[in-house]
Amino acid sequence: NKNQALIKQLLANNTQVYVCGQSATHFKVTSELLIDGVKMSLSAMTAHAQLQQQGYTFNPF
């Protein structure tokens, strides 16, 4: 993963990182292949809905 260093820095600074489970399945990425600390959501839409319930907002810009 060419973004591994960045992801590890984000995780080290208490950032939550999620991967879309549907995309992961399509690309044959299993949870065992994820960087320690990265979480797999059922889908990006599910993660977005759950984060909105926690008070997070989405800014597409």
Rank of each mutant, 00 (worst) to 15 (best):
Q52A: 12
Q4E: 14
S23T: 09
T30E: 14
K2S: 08
N14E: 05
A49T: 09
L11R: 00
L6T: 01
H48P: 01
V17P: 02
V17I: 08
L51T: 05
L11C: 06
A24G: 09
A49H: 10
L6Q: 12
H26D: 15
S31Q: 12
V38G: 02
S43D: 02
L10T: 01
N14A: 08
G37T: 08
N14Y: 10
C20S: 05
S23W: 07
M45V: 15
F61A: 02
T15L: 13
N13R: 06
K2P: 02
N1Q: 13
K39W: 07
F27Q: 02
H48L: 04
A44G: 11
S31K: 04
T46R: 11
K28G: 05
Q54M: 14
A44K: 06
S31E: 06
A24P: 00
G21N: 02
A47K: 15
L6R: 08
T30N: 11
G55N: 03
N13E: 14
K28W: 04
N14G: 15
V19D: 00
Q53Y: 08
L42R: 12
T30L: 02
L42M: 12
Q9P: 03
Q4N: 10
A47I: 04
Q22S: 11
F27R: 09
K2R: 13
Q22T: 06
A44D: 05
T46A: 13
Q53H: 05
Q53V: 09
S43M: 04
Q16T: 10
P60G: 09
K2W: 08
C20Q: 02
K39I: 11
Y56N: 04
S43P: 03
I35F: 01
N13P: 01
D36L: 09
T15Y: 12
Q54A: 13
N14T: 14
A44N: 01
L42Y: 07
V17W: 07
L33M: 12
T46W: 14
T46Q: 07
K39R: 13
A12T: 14
P60I: 15
A44M: 09
I7G: 01
Q50F: 10
Q4L: 11
A24S: 12
Q52G: 07
T15P: 00
L34H: 05
L51A: 03
H26T: 12
V38I: 09
I35P: 00
Q50K: 06
L51W: 09
K8T: 06
A47L: 03
F58C: 14
V29K: 01
A5E: 14
T57F: 11
Y18P: 00
F61W: 10
S43R: 01
D36F: 14
Y18M: 04
K28D: 15
H26C: 14
F27E: 12
A12H: 13
S41N: 07
F61V: 13
F27A: 05
L34P: 00
S23G: 11
Q4C: 00
Q16A: 13
Q16S: 11
A5Q: 07
